[in-house]
Simulated assay, not measured.
Amino acid sequence: MEQLTGQIRGIRVGWSEGGDPEGGPLVLLHGFTGSSDVWGSFEQVLGGCRLIMPDLTGHGRTDSPADPGRYGMEEQIADLDALFDAIGLDRFSLLGYSMGGRVAIGYAAARQERVRRLILESTSPGLLLEEERQKRRDSDKNLAAFILREGIPAFTDYWEGIPLFESQLGLPAARRREVREGRLCNRPEGLAGSLLGIGTGSQPSYWEELHGLSMPVTLITGSLDGKYAAIASRMLKALPDARHAEVEGAGHAVHVENPERFATIVKEAINEGGQP
């Protein structure tokens, strides 16, 4: 993978590129506490594609602005648009995991003409009710304050212990260390800004927009992640052209817990209609 940086709309943005430069483009968006590095192990199996892997705001080699508003959905969409224009990317398949999946939904809703197909792993279109959003904003505000006060190691200890990632306890020790080291590379101000600016309570709800997404959509969830499997089932009913792939024995991070099956599903999705 080639690691790159550039000035995009006033901030430094990092991204990685790999695979076949002449292949159909596939953009991959990581989740909260991740970076473009999480996709490195998929370069060989997805190598027939041109892989573009941005570091979202506050993560990886992308700057961590002081203003939480700079992390908001409209800003993220504009940053991605500017990056794609800068590297000559017109139409592409778009894959997003968790937080990255929420950004992918927002981007697809705003820029349908650029997205050939959408692949969403363990994600949500947001919270439908304002009461739910306010409760989540309050929770994210408290967590952001904890990160800034206690630092990344203490936050990582907490984050690894939440029920969402319980299924990762069964992974080999080396794999768990790799995931932990990636989380420890984060900056407190980046994670705090991300929670405040584009947490589930701060982003728009895209449930109503799902009906208008005309591109093929593949939803990926793990069978052990009941919450997001249920969300995917609801999304499946709202999307005009979608399928849901559930991976047995996997939790929230399917690409971590069963990378072979995850890669197979992604390859099937991008090959359904020819080039990505």
Results as ranks from 00 to 15, higher is better:
Y107P: 08
Y107G: 05
A109I: 06
A110Q: 08
A110T: 04
Q112K: 12
E113D: 15
R114Y: 06
R114S: 04
R116I: 06
R117Q: 14
S122L: 09
S122V: 05
S124H: 03
P125Y: 07
G126R: 11
G126W: 07
L127D: 09
L128F: 04
L129C: 02
L129K: 14
L129T: 15
E130P: 04
E130Q: 13
E130G: 05
E131G: 04
E131D: 14
E132V: 09
E132R: 13
Q134C: 00
K135D: 09
R136V: 02
R136K: 14
S139M: 02
N142M: 12
L143D: 00
A144I: 02
A144Y: 01
A145C: 00
I147E: 04
L148I: 05
L148N: 08
R149V: 00
R149H: 11
G151I: 05
G151M: 02
I152N: 05
I152D: 02
I152M: 12
P153S: 10
A154R: 14
F155V: 09
T156M: 07
Y158F: 15
W159I: 03
W159N: 02
P163F: 13
F165E: 03
F165P: 05
S167D: 14
S167P: 03
L171I: 04
L171S: 13
L171N: 10
P172H: 10
A174Y: 03
R176A: 11
R177P: 00
R177I: 08
E178V: 00
V179M: 12
E181A: 13
E181L: 14
R183N: 04
N186D: 05
R187N: 01
E189S: 14
E189M: 04
E189P: 08
E189L: 06
E189Y: 06
G190Q: 04
G190R: 01
L191H: 00
